[in-house]
């Protein structure tokens, strides 16, 4: 569903209004960059994807139909740009028509260390954050895109399906696999990573 301000902005964009272009870039470029950075895992590629996204959005703005919001439409362009670029780097991993239930390894949990009880300072320290980022980077691109949109960017299942042109069940299945893989990896990390020094542990 499209809000009236969205429809108004779309109309101005379609009329070639430069100020509207600037407003659109100003409102959405931060989100697109963040998505691109998480998808690509490095700043240089993220910037390329960012530029490609807006260039291609402006080129095809005439074809924007108010069936989705401008932001969903733009996210779709950005995800495609990122996946296209990733396909060049990881041709085996990224295929649009990959069967959803491809066997991508055993999902059975092996690590049962309950890291929930660790102090927040251990869970949130920089090394843990870096490990979390690496874990996402190392997911297969098809799982990564779903996980980023759904769990990091906070889109709903429907919005994610819409953005990536997937069925809701494919989104759920990929999200499930992404989450289980990340859980396994973080459990492994927290189980073996020496915790930060705790004052008072000695007593």
């Amino acid at each position: 569903m499209v809000s009236s301000s969205d429809a108004e902005l779309a109309a101005r964009l379609q009329a070639g209004d430069q100020a509207a272009y600037a407003q659109f870039v100003d409102e959405h470029s931060g989100h697109v960059y963040r998505l691109a950075l998480r998808m690509m895992g490095n700043e240089a590629d993220a910037e390329d994807v960012l530029q490609e996204t807006f260039l291609s959005a402006f080129k095809s703005i005439d074809r924007f139909e108010a069936r989705s919001s401008l932001s969903t439409w733009l996210y779709r362009i950005a995800s495609n740009a990122a996946l296209m670029r990733l396909r060049r780097y990881e041709p085996d991993q990224v295929s649009v028509d990959e069967p959803v239930e491809r066997d991508d390894g055993d999902l059975l949990p092996r690590q049962f260390f309950d890291f929930c009880c660790l102090p927040e300072e251990d869970l949130l320290r920089d090394e843990a954050r870096a490990e979390m980022d690496r874990a996402v980077d190392e997911l297969p691109a098809t799982l990564r895109s779903v996980f980023i949109l759904r769990d990091i960017e906070g889109l709903s299942t429907d919005e994610t399906a819409n953005t990536l042109n997937l069925s809701v069940s494919a989104v759920k299945s990929r999200l499930m696999r992404a989450r289980l893989k990340l859980r396994e990896r973080l459990s492994e990390y927290f189980a073996h990573e020496p915790a930060a020094v705790h004052v008072g542990d000695e007593e």
């Binding site: 931060g30 049962f112 890291f115 769990d151 990091i152 859980r183 973080l186 459990s187």
Partner: peptide, 24 residues
């Protein structure tokens, strides 16, 4: 085991939801 998996799965999701957004 399943209790731990559910707890840590939920915590994993939460940790990612709370991760700071990188600035452009």
């Amino acid at each position: 085991n399943c209790r731990v998996v559910v707890n840590t799965l939920t915590k994993t999701i939460l940790l990612y939801r709370q991760s700071p957004a990188p600035d452009m």
